[in-house]
Structures are given as C-alpha cells and as structure tokens.
C-alpha cells in the first residue's frame, strides 16, 4: 500500500526539473558573487581570486558616491520599515481582531493596492502626485513612496501570525481585570513579535531593493544604491559593480533567512 502511494506521487523527470529550476534561480547569483572576486580590470577575463574590488568599493574613485547612496538606502529602509510596520500592526489588529465590519473588504483592498497596481504605474502616479502638490523631489519623496509600498509587505506576515494566535489568551487576561489596552500590549503584542520582526525585515528588504519607484521620485542628485548601480551599469558592467551587488545580495539573503527562522519559532506549540 505504502509502495503504491509513493509511486502515484512520484513522476519521472520532475526531480530533474526541480534541480534545473533551482539551478536557474541561483546561477546568476552565484556568477555575480564569483566574478566579484575576480582580480582583473575587465569582467571578461578571469585572473584569479582577490578582494581588490571590495577594497575599490570602499576607497576607489567612486567610493564617495557609493557611501552616500548606501547611507540614503539604509536610512530610508530603516525609517520606511519602521513606519510601515507600525501602520501594518495596527491595521492587522483591526482586521483580525475587529469582528465583522462593512469596510473590511475595502480596507483589505486598500492595503493590498500597492501590490496589485503594476510598479511602473505606481511610480508614475506617485510622481504626478508629488508634482501637482508641489513637493520637491528628493530624500523625503523617496521615503514617503517607500512607506506606502512597504505596508502590504509588512501587513501579510503580521496578520497571518495574528490569525494563528487564539484569542483565549487575551480573554483570560481580561477575565483577570486587564484592560483591553493591557491585553493588547502585554499579551497580544509579545506573542506577535515573530510576525512583526518578519514583517519588518520584509519591508526593509523591499525598500532597500526598490529601483523603479525610487528612480521616478528621487529627483536629481539624490541616489540610493539601486539607482547608483543602474547609473553605472548603463555605462557597462564594471567589476566594482559586481562587488557592491554581491554585498547587497548578501544583506538580502541574510535578512530573509533571519525572517524565515523567526517566523517559524513557536509555530509548533
């Protein structure tokens, strides 16, 4: 019986295609990483392993540009993720613990709107908005736009986590004369921490990685890492771009991995 069940599920060739799929997904990432270690002035020739292009990123003639871009990218990502996570946590509490209400579907539609509208359309709309209300494009406009599209990315893991928490804990707290506010801050919020961290990290990565919307609303002179990389790539792929890309890639992979393991904690209890 066990044998036949196993047979039904396994289809010939599917394992091979899965390996191919993973190969396709990872090959470009591996190639960038490997070539960032290339000790050559051109990206075409392989001349042995060295870290010279990493040194170049921090002290080469473009280092000043990258430093400013990195500062902009990381500060925007930190602020955008913080604000978006706060808004998303409050919204998730209303959506998951607020009973049935008329505007529930509309609210959910509004929260997921940045995900449904194609990114380039959102970029155009945001640019037009800033232009017509007379905001000068720069750091602030990037930040405002980032918070908006970070909200759904923070919301999804947070609300998923909250749906998994039985409300009997909060009921018990209230039976013991805790106010609703206390039940929220002392019981629900601590239990929500893994979901909130996970949502925060996803929002952070999405902000750090965004190119299209940033490119539209940044204005002249203000660059983030992706727009700086794009500007350099337009003149040809240089080895220092490989190095800076590898570092950015590393940050994303590490944060996603943390997010994954944090969101898994306690799920089995």
């Amino acid at each position: 019986m066990r044998r036949s069940k196993y047979d039904i599920k396994s289809l010939p060739g599917f394992f091979g295609i899965t390996i191919l799929c993973l190969f396709i997904l990872y090959a470009p990432l591996v190639v960038v990483t490997v070539y960032s270690l290339n000790d050559s002035n051109s990206i075409t020739n392989w001349e042995g392993v060295s870290l010279r292009w990493y040194v170049d990123v921090f002290s080469g003639h473009e280092s000043q540009k990258f430093k400013i871009a990195a500062w902009n990218s990381f500060t925007i990502a930190i602020i955008a993720a913080t604000v978006a996570t706060t808004i998303a946590t409050l919204a998730a509490t209303a959506m998951v613990r607020g009973g049935k209400f008329k505007l529930r579907t509309v609210s959910f539609g509004l929260i997921s709107l940045p995900l449904m509208v194609p990114e380039i359309v959102l970029a155009v709309a945001t640019l037009i908005f800033f232009n017509s209300v007379g905001f000068t494009r720069g750091y602030a406009t990037i930040l405002i736009a980032h918070i908006a599209f970070c909200i759904p990315f923070a919301y999804l893991p947070i609300s998923a986590r909250m749906q998994g928490i039985d409300d009997s804990y909060e009921q018990a707290a209230q039976d013991l004369y805790a106010t609703k506010r206390q039940a929220f801050t002392r019981i629900l919020l601590p239990m929500m921490i893994p979901g909130i961290i996970s949502g925060y990290l996803l929002a952070f990565i999405v902000s750090l990685d965004d190119f299209i919307i940033t490119n539209f609303v940044k204005g002249a002179g203000v660059e983030t890492l992706p727009t700086a990389i794009f500007g350099s790539v337009k003149q040809g792929i240089k080895p220092n771009i490989m190095a800076i890309s590898t570092m950015l890639l590393g940050v994303s992979v590490i944060l996603v991995t943390i997010s994954y393991f944090v969101s898994k904690t306690d799920n089995k209890k």
């Binding site: 509490t93 209303a94 009973g99 609210s107 509208v117 918070i147 609703k180």
Partner: peptide, 30 residues
Amino acid sequence: SASTDTYKEARNWLLLPAWVYLGVFVLIPV
C-alpha cells in the same frame, strides 16, 4: 475563524493610519 472582535471599539482608530496613508499616497495619486 481565529479572528474575533476583542478590539471592535478601537477598530476605526486602528485602521485610520493605514486608510489615511494609503489613501493620500496611493489612491489619490492613481
């Protein structure tokens, strides 16, 4: 089905920041 109405009274206040932010910076721009 794990959703409940513990914070029913505060619902609108909790949703307000999301409504305002996404309304002003996503819906109005579109």
